[in-house]
Amino acid sequence: MKKDENAFSFEAAEESPGFLLWQVTSLWQREIRKALEKYDLTHSQFVLLASIMWLSQQQEPVTQILLSAHSKIDPMTTSTVLRTLQTKGLLERKEHATDTRAKTVVLTETGIKTTKQAIKIVEKFDAEFFEPLGAKVNEFNKKLRLLLGQ
Rank of each mutant, 00 (worst) to 15 (best):
L20A: 04
L20H: 08
L20N: 04
L20C: 08
L21Y: 07
W22I: 03
W22E: 02
Q23H: 02
Q23G: 03
Q23F: 05
Q23W: 07
Q23R: 11
Q23A: 01
V24E: 01
V24F: 00
V24P: 06
T25N: 10
S26Y: 05
S26W: 07
S26D: 08
L27N: 08
Q29E: 13
Q29V: 03
Q29A: 00
R30C: 01
R30Y: 11
R30I: 04
E31F: 03
E31V: 02
E31C: 07
E31W: 04
I32M: 11
I32D: 03
I32G: 10
R33Y: 09
R33C: 06
R33D: 12
R33A: 04
R33Q: 12
K34H: 10
A35W: 01
L36V: 09
L36H: 00
E37N: 11
E37H: 08
E37R: 12
K38C: 02
K38G: 04
Y39P: 06
Y39W: 01
D40Q: 14
D40T: 12
L41I: 08
L41F: 11
T42Q: 00
H43G: 05
H43Y: 14
Q45I: 03
F46P: 09
F46Q: 07
L49P: 03
L49D: 11
A50H: 09
A50V: 10
A50P: 09
S51F: 05
I52N: 01
I52P: 01
I52C: 02
I52F: 06
I52Y: 09
M53K: 14
M53L: 15
M53S: 13
W54D: 14
W54V: 14
W54P: 06
Q57W: 10
Q58T: 14
Q58W: 11
Q59F: 08
E60M: 15
P61H: 09
P61A: 05
V62M: 01
T63V: 00
T63P: 01
T63Y: 08
I65L: 12
I65C: 03
I65R: 12
L66Q: 11
L66T: 12
L66N: 07
L66Y: 03
L67F: 01
L67G: 06
L67D: 03
S68P: 04
S68Q: 09
S68E: 06
A69Q: 15
A69K: 15
H70D: 13
H70P: 11
H70M: 13
K72H: 14
I73F: 09
I73H: 04
D74Q: 15
M76D: 14
T77S: 13
T78L: 07
T78G: 02
S79G: 13
S79H: 04
T80K: 15
T80F: 12
T80E: 14
V81P: 10
V81Y: 05
L82T: 11
L82V: 00
R83V: 07
R83P: 00
R83Y: 12
T84I: 09
T84D: 13
T84Q: 13
L85W: 10
L85Q: 05
L85R: 08
L85V: 10
L85K: 01
Q86C: 09
Q86E: 15
T87K: 15
T87P: 11
T87A: 14
T87Q: 14
K88A: 08
K88E: 10
G89H: 00
G89Q: 06
G89S: 06
G89E: 06
G89I: 09
L90H: 06
L90V: 03
L91G: 07
R93C: 06
R93K: 13
K94D: 08
K94H: 10
E95A: 12
